[in-house]
């Protein structure tokens, strides 16, 4: 965690931001594969089923293809933001010039 009086190291700060960006893009790829991968099979197959299959009143494909990923994404976001992301000292504002 950064000390608010710490001097800003622009280069180090930039590289840390870039690293975090890579984590976020990788996270998106993971959830894309899960949600679209599962739903593109189960969700479209559900159109041909005579009876709707449900879990807790939710169509089964929505439950496993959206609600569970939503829960996992919540847990991951809490972990990433509170444990993985680093704080950086903030720049002093320069004089206002339009």
């Amino acid at each position: 965690m950064a000390d608010s009086n710490q001097r800003v190291d622009t280069g180090a700060s930039f590289r840390q931001c870039l690293l975090e960006l890579k984590w976020m893009v990788a996270t998106w790829v993971f959830f894309f594969a899960w949600v679209i991968g599962y739903s593109s099979v189960a969700g479209y197959a559900a159109a041909e089923q005579a009876e709707v299959q449900m879990v807790w009143g939710i169509p089964r494909w929505v439950f496993f293809g959206w609600l569970i990923p939503l829960g996992v994404a919540n847990v991951f976001t809490v972990w990433f933001c509170l444990c993985k992301m680093q704080d950086e000292p903030m720049e002093e504002l320069p004089e206002d010039t339009p």
Binding site: V25, V35, M90
Partner: peptide, 25 residues
Amino acid sequence: MALWIAGYIIVPLVAMGLISKRLNQ
């Protein structure tokens, strides 16, 4: 519509996280 909006499960992390810190700096 759950599938249509499914990207929202990752919106706060990606939309806020991707550029916020760097943009603010």
